[in-house]
Design a protein around this nucleic acid. Sequence first.
DNA 1: CAATTCCTCCGTCAAGGTGC
DNA 2: GCACCTTGACGGAGGAATTG
Length: 328
Amino acid sequence: MTMETVESQQDGNTMDSVGENESIQIQTQPGQTVAQVSVAGNTAGVGSPAMTVVQLPSGQTVQVQGVIQPTQPSVIQSPQIQTVQVATIADTDESGESEGVTDSQKRREILSRRPSYRKILNELSSDVPGVPKIDEEKSEEEGTPSAITTMAMPTSIYQTSTGQYIAIAQGGTIQIANPTSDGVQGLQTLTMTNSGTPQPGATIVQYAAQSPDGTQQFFVPGSQVVVQAATGDMPAYQIRTPTTALPQGVVMAASPGTLHSPQQLAEEATRKRELRLMKNREAAKECRRRKKEYVKCLESRVAVLEVQNKKLIEELETLKDIYSTKTD
DNA sequence: CAATTCCTCCGTCAAGGTGC
DNA sequence: GCACCTTGACGGAGGAATTG
């Protein structure tokens, strides 16, 4: 039973191709090198197969058209020069253990310095057309509407008496979030449409609810005051000027500059904390989604490399046969 | 069939990175 | 320097698989 090991030394963060400057040693017995294979990545043009130079133990060199393409894309971060050892030996040498410790430390350092999954995949996708790109504001992955990721930075955030948060962004988006509900599902997005309504200072807000028929209107004068206009199955909110008398049961969170009492300060702190937790909740979801995508990409890359490895081994077996028939 | 283990998902915290 | 983002780590919840 033979075992194949592929080790790669990585010492940098730059994205590079696997096919550049590879050196592969083929051994059939411990300590006995049958052939050394060098792949010169730049000797072949793009799209044409690389020429593989096989150095035989007798010193004879053979040029072969290899299966490794000169510019293979790699998800795994690779150094400028990559050393790959392909061994068909059942037992590895004893230095592997001590090397494993330093390798793990190096790997840990590399991991700690690794940029985000989005950066890695987006850098990769800019080089390789086949690699999917992680959108900056992807919202439909896995069927979960992630409205908060598409949300512009809110300029005002209000809390109603029912505990719901209403964020008004400069881009005209209103976010209604229920912190007691399950994350994204509690988020509802409203889009302001300044349709030139004759009402002075008012903006019609279309309520993007689950039902397409459930369109409701909101009036937004210059000063943004959100009023819970009605209660029931479908919550409704109204945004009025501060001079308008507020209905009962509406809790307004004033801007920090107007806070005076310790109770107001405490409420403000609680509100900020809830908002931070809500954002981090969504960020963690998004991060996990990106990580999944990243791992999938790595797995597919591993599959490709395994196929290439298999082909390379077959190719070298063929070369060995050619060599043995020549020497006979 | 109840108890236990394993796996996956999620929320939260904390630390480091980033942009202004 | 500060606010915000990103992500590893941790622990809990819940469901599936396993075991006695």
